[in-house]
């Protein structure tokens, strides 16, 4: 007999100082998660508008995915990335920036970022990241994914 698997709500943290960008991301993530054939569909969102609130929210929620703006009013997203990965090494972090420099891209990769989006956001960029997220969780060791899959 096949056991039905229920996917636990995944936590997504959106870090951007501009409220409109966070709203736009949230709307489009919701739309794409429900429309596209993705394995992980259930989610809950948390938001932060600066580095200090991002760090606090991250520590409390330990999200599976983070969209992290590099240019924050009170600090750099690159520094936050290191702190996030120390706390939760398998967290899928998408760096977001208005401009990409070779140095920023290299630092992001070296610090464990999974992806990098140069703003403005487009549907293609967001969808590409979600597909990557699906593949990423498929490759993780079973014990890392199991907490996400709860038997009813």
């Amino acid at each position: 007999m096949q056991t039905k698997i229920k996917v636990r709500e995944q936590k997504i943290l959106l870090v951007d100082d501009l409220d409109y960008n966070r709203q736009l991301l949230r709307n489009n993530l919701t739309m794409l998660f429900s429309r596209e054939k993705l394995k992980y569909k259930a989610f809950s969102y948390f938001q932060a508008h600066n580095a200090s609130s991002a760090l606090q929210t991250f520590s409390q929620q330990l999200p599976e995915m983070v969209f992290l703006d590099i240019e924050l009013p009170d600090g750099s997203g690159l520094e936050l990335l290191k702190r996030f990965k120390e706390q939760k090494p398998d967290c899928f972090v998408v760096m977001v920036s208005g401009v990409s420099t070779l140095e920023n891209v290299k630092t992001s990769i070296d610090s464990g970022a999974a992806s990098f989006i140069v703003k403005p956001f487009t549907g293609d960029k967001i969808l590409a990241v979600l597909k990557q997220f699906d593949r990423y969780y498929d490759k993780l060791p079973k014990q890392a994914v199991e907490p996400l899959l709860q038997k009813p």
């Binding site: 920036s97 401009v99 403005p120």
Partner: peptide
């Protein structure tokens, strides 16, 4: 200007 560059096109 940097903020406009990064966000305006999405809106």
């Amino acid at each position: 200007v940097h903020q406009l560059k990064g966000s305006a096109a999405s809106f």
